[in-house]
Nucleic acid binder design. Sequence first.
DNA 1: TTACCTGCAAAGAGTTTGCAGGTAG
DNA 2: CTACCTGCAAACTCTTTGCAGGTAA
Lengths: 138, 138
Amino acid sequence: MRNISQFTEKLRLSGLRPTKQRISICEALFDRNDTFHFTINDLTKILKRKVNKKISIATVYNTVHAFKNKGYLKQISINSDKSYFDTNVSEHHHFFDEDMNKLIDLENEYLDKIKIKKKIPGKKIKSVEVLVKVVNNK
Amino acid sequence: MRNISQFTEKLRLSGLRPTKQRISICEALFDRNDTFHFTINDLTKILKRKVNKKISIATVYNTVHAFKNKGYLKQISINSDKSYFDTNVSEHHHFFDEDMNKLIDLENEYLDKIKIKKKIPGKKIKSVEVLVKVVNNK
DNA sequence: TTACCTGCAAAGAGTTTGCAGGTAG
DNA sequence: CTACCTGCAAACTCTTTGCAGGTAA
């Protein structure tokens, strides 16, 4: 219950109206202890389970994009037909489990700082992402 | 001309029949000095320009997937609506130019070896990919 | 009241599939 | 001759868009 007012305020502060739908999505995404990796489809299923009234897919897409633009979500690069998002917006990397189609955080502390010794003229680095693909052992 | 017979043999050796279409696609992809990054759409346009008879999209997809499975092409992880492929199948990394939507090779020599100091139980590492997103400077 | 938000359905992009006809070996 | 390959269109999946009606401030 306390969280709902937190979400309301957070939304208001970022210039997003705290509608019922957005608050439900906040609860699904941010009311947890661990970081959460998901596709739109995953999120839709969770919402279907948790919310009595159905939230339209268009609204889910709109909200996820709004949250991404506000910096509350990060989109992860994977070659997949779907987009993956992460509630952990700190600088970090990922494992991708190809058997489970699941992302796992790889915190910065588990690898040395990456130094890129090549420059592209006229370009500056925006981000460096490491994706470690893993498969079942054996 | 010499290349055509090379491609024919390469295809035959991998158990793929050297059809006209596949040889044309080989020429478009592999008859170059530098490595080549492309989407299916890029490849289709090149084929339209170079080949007198049109190659069906289904065949282009089939062939690209066959080549990928044979290890002649690599698929690159980017969060994009399209799939990107690379004729450079050696272990290396990429820049992604977000203004041009273009991939640029980042050879291994330009970064230190990446050591992952975290293990996922029951899983083994299949690949480590670094994607450096760049944008226009200024 | 007004600007913003939601939900639906339709449209759009990329990719895959089913199948009839064609071709390599 | 037979297995494999191609081309077309239809189907499918994910995502975006247009718009009428609803809601927050």
